[in-house]
């Protein structure tokens, strides 16, 4: 039962049955934006013409602002930080795109290293089953095939779903995924034709999505060679350091830690932060190792295409979702940047 088939007419049953064991999330329209949110009904989901969520879904496991610790001013444990993480709710997310699932896998490598594990990320991540939807019509801003991926990439997903028109074809990829599929009464064995149709869709999407740039020279050049390229002045010239790219990006993960006080005590929170800001690196002495936008813009691209691959087994720190391409107010296009880096 690697593959199972769900008639779209039975989506309501699917959501209902799944909802008995966990919270079900899916893409939902909110004004002009699409985001992942809890759904109680199949019709809550904005699957018609669905491309991808406006913001990346990283916020599900890594909220823009998250309480980490708390403390009280009075009592036996006055001024002692306490860890009060709640047990995360079990979730299944329907409709995650393969690029975003791959970004989760990259963040798994970031939020855990040889010494430390960030439990705030993993507790939520481990409690979630990802039911991804292969991309049949990639957007003009997408470029997953240029960053070692493709529109039906399975890495990072628990279940890959193919939209066959009348049916969805479910391919269970992990234990979590198999359990989810097995728990739904309206799943049916697919026909050979169903599986064949899935293969055709997958092939078609890959063919449409041609490779737009290479990364071979970026890999071969040394850190300092890339760092000292002339291209950075021109690339950074239009940048406003607005940080939009960092906030929408599924792999950007930098955060700030701050204490917030209340009458009785306070909390230690973490907030998304961006390497585009001046405050990010400035020392208490006033010295700033990245004083202008040139250094900051360079950092963002070097991090994704050189530093992360060097430290994480060649994995590129960009999944080609194209959100930053679509949303950058001055039209900086990461594809053009990498072409220059790779020249």
């Amino acid at each position: 039962m690697e593959y199972m088939r769900l008639n779209k007419k039975n989506m309501a049953v699917f959501i209902e049955e799944l909802g008995r064991t966990c919270e079900v999330w899916g893409p939902v329209k909110e004004g002009e934006q699409v985001k992942y949110a809890p759904v109680s009904n199949a019709t809550d989901m904005a699957l018609d013409g669905f491309k991808n969520s406006t913001m990346s879904p990283k916020e599900i496991f890594f909220p823009q602002s998250e309480k980490m610790l708390s403390f009280r001013r009075e009592g036996e444990d006055a001024n002692i930080y306490r860890d009060e993480q709640a047990q995360p709710t079990k979730k299944a997310i329907f409709g995650i795109r393969p690029c975003d699932a791959r970004a989760f896998r990259i963040l798994d490598m970031i939020f855990k290293n040889d010494q430390f594990t960030d439990n705030y990320w993993f507790s939520k991540r481990d409690a979630t089953t990802l039911v991804g939807l292969g991309c049949t019509e990639p957007c003009s801003t997408c470029f997953c095939t240029s960053v070692n991926s493709h529109p039906f990439d399975e890495k990072g997903l628990d279940v890959l779903v193919s939209d066959l028109g009348e049916h969805y074809l479910f391919k269970a990829l992990t234990k979590k995924g198999r359990e989810l599929v097995a728990g739904i009464s309206v799943m049916r064995e697919p026909s050979d034709a169903n599986i064949e149709a899935h293969m055709v869709l997958r092939k078609k999407a890959e063919d449409v999505m041609t490779v737009q740039f290479g990364t071979d020279k970026v890999k071969d050049k040394t850190v300092l060679e890339l760092f000292n390229e002339d291209c950075w002045t021109g690339i950074s010239e239009p940048c406003l350091n607005c940080s939009t790219c960092s906030y929408v990006c599924p792999t950007c993960h930098c955060f700030d830690i701050q204490d917030e006080v209340s009458k009785e005590g306070g909390e230690r929170v973490r907030n998304w932060e961006s390497c585009m800001t001046w405050i990010f690196t400035v020392h208490a002495t006033g010295h700033n190792p990245r004083p202008t936008k040139k250094e900051r813009v360079r950092q963002r691209f070097m991090h994704k295409f050189k530093y992360i691959p060097m430290k994480r087994n060649g994995e590129i720190g960009c999944v080609g979702c194209g959100r930053c391409v679509a949303l950058c107010p001055v039209n900086i296009d990461i594809r053009e940047v990498v072409k220059q880096m790779n020249s």
């Binding site: 970031i110 939020f111 290293n113 010494q115 430390f116 960030d118 850190v223 760092f227 993960h253 930098c254 955060f255 700030d256 830690i257 973490r270 932060e273 390497c275 990010f280 690196t281 190792p289 950092q299 070097m302 991090h303 050189k306 530093y307 060097m310 430290k311």
Partner: peptide, 10 residues
């Protein structure tokens, strides 16, 4: 080594 703040190159 997680928050991304302090890197010098890789």
């Amino acid at each position: 080594g997680i928050c991304g703040r302090c890197n010098v190159g890789p």
